[in-house]
Design a protein around this nucleic acid. Structure first.
Length: 357
DNA sequence: AATTCGGGGGT
DNA sequence: ACCCCAGAATT
């Protein structure tokens, strides 16, 4: 252990004891189920955004067995709006694994924890340290930022080499007798003091030995090598009424919003109005020769995702005969709130209640 | 090793 | 616009 590393760990723990006031409902929590649930919800998600979901899940499913036996659609409804829906699917799979293989008792060994669906290196270390005080250092966005700045490491954090370098360093810095407190400290410190923008360097207890501060690298650390490309997509949704039913389906393709539902979708590579849409093959495949009556259009939607921009329009139609389209099902309009929908559709549904077609 | 998976908030 | 968020699974 070098001097600066001892200094780092000691000052961090001291900051946590004396200055850290960040409070969260699962802090100090020892129930591994609750810790796990909070960690799954908080993957790539801000505490403020995830908090109400956490409360709701704990209330509805107080333990792993309850979650494991819950109806899948009900669980997705609770997850609706939180994003990254694979987390929900994997969470259910993990809960069932805990119920079946471990009799509902959360496994206490790192390798067992890590083997559960949806649990990667970060979450395994978090649960192992917080619930069982096992010596595994967490490596999340906060840790990357704090370590890269204090130690002046310019290796890109989104590279294989970076993951190993930062992971090894984080593990070396971990005081094995205080893994829970230390892991909590470094993440809180990154969130409160060593923030992405406008970090509080003047009041930082580490500033004397911070390499980024000494070398004026605060704004360039941590380094990320990849830049993402954003695609534009045009989702034309048809809300087709048949008697009191509306056609929907569950999205299953390897694409966004897996396991969520949607109306009849005609995706186009360019924006098209209703008249132009009717001339496409896709439209004819859906409607065939079925006569339809135009009911109205909803407010156009625009949703910004990480890798794509979704432009959506909503066109309401009514038919007097069932549609030939087979992969959609006609469900009672009043039952729509039993299904989980992506944000762009729930926004439309809310809008529609005000307008009424 | 690179890509893809949401949605919200800050700048 | 762009970045970031208690990352993980898939390709």
């Amino acid at each position: 252990m070098t001097n600066s590393r001892l200094f780092f760990t000691e000052k961090l723990l001291e900051w946590n004891r004396e200055t850290n006031t960040r409070s969260m409902p699962w802090k100090g929590e020892k129930d591994p189920y609750r810790i796990w649930l909070s960690e799954i919800i908080l993957q790539q998600t801000r505490v403020e955004q995830g908090l109400p979901y956490y409360q709701n899940f704990i209330k509805n499913y107080p333990d792993a067995k309850k979650l494991a036996s819950a109806p899948e659609e009900e669980v997705f409804r609770l997850w609706q709006g939180l994003g990254y829906y694979a987390r929900c699917k994997n969470m259910l799979a993990a809960a069932r694994e805990i119920a079946d293989t471990y009799q509902g008792k959360f496994p206490a060994q790192y390798d067992q924890i890590k083997a559960l669906k949806g649990i990667g290196p970060y979450t395994a270390a978090a649960v192992a340290s917080f619930a069982f005080n096992l010596p595994y250092a967490v490596l999340d966005g906060n840790v990357y930022r704090v370590l890269s700045r204090f130690f002046g490491i310019e290796t890109p954090i989104d590279s294989t080499a970076g993951k190993k370098e930062f992971g090894d360093l984080a593990q070396e810095l971990l005081p094995h007798d205080q893994s829970a407190a230390y892991n909590q400290s470094i993440m809180d410190f990154g969130a409160v003091v060593c923030k992405p923008q406008q970090p509080l360097c003047n009041e930082c207890p580490l500033n004397k030995k911070c390499a980024a501060r000494q070398q004026q690298l605060i704004s360039v650390l941590p380094v990320k090598s990849k830049k993402l490309q954003i695609k534009k997509r045009y989702f034309n949704y048809f809300i087709v009424h048949y008697k009191d039913n509306i056609y929907i389906r569950k999205r299953t393709a390897s694409d966004i919003w897996q396991n969520l539902h949607e109306f009849i979708l005609l995706e186009t590579s360019t924006p098209l109005d209703f008249e132009a849409l009717q001339q496409t093959d896709g439209f004819r495949q859906i409607f065939g020769n079925t006569r339809f009556e135009f009911e109205g259009v909803g407010k156009p939607g625009k949703q910004q995702l990480t890798h794509q921009t979704i432009f959506s329009q909503f066109i309401s139609l009514s038919v007097k005969q069932p549609l030939p389209a087979t992969d959609y099902m006609a469900v009672p309009a009043a039952s729509l709130n039993n299904y989980a929908f992506p944000k762009t559709i729930t926004a439309f549904l809310q809008q529609r209640h005000l307008q009424l077609f």
